[in-house]
């Protein structure tokens, strides 16, 4: 069970958290101006790296905040967690 460092609460067991998909997928500011292909990419295309992966977690059974993390998909090591909007 991972020990994840919530940027607000500190290290907490994985079962308090909920994974929330890939990070830094920006919702287009003006969706009406975006082509079908670009919109589909926003909805469905995600990276699947063998290595460091930027992803979102939510401290669902804790402070309830969403935050970003960098996790290595092979070792499951989370190397950094940051509040939304901050760069690690």
């Amino acid at each position: 069970m991972l020990l994840i460092t919530c940027p607000w609460c500190g290290p907490r067991p994985e079962i308090e958290f909920r994974h929330a998909g890939e990070a830094h997928i920006a919702r287009p500011a003006d969706p009406a101006a975006v082509s079908d292909a670009a919109w589909a990419a926003y909805l469905y295309e995600r990276s699947n790296p063998r290595g460091e992966h930027a992803e979102r977690w939510r401290h669902a059974h804790g402070c309830g905040r969403f935050f970003n993390a960098r996790r290595h998909t092979l070792t499951d090591r989370i190397s950094a967690t940051t509040k939304p909007g901050e760069t690690p």
Partner: peptide
């Protein structure tokens, strides 16, 4: 104080 889990319950 904190929210956390006890078994199956938050």
């Amino acid at each position: 104080c904190t929210r956390t889990l006890f078994g199956k319950v938050e």
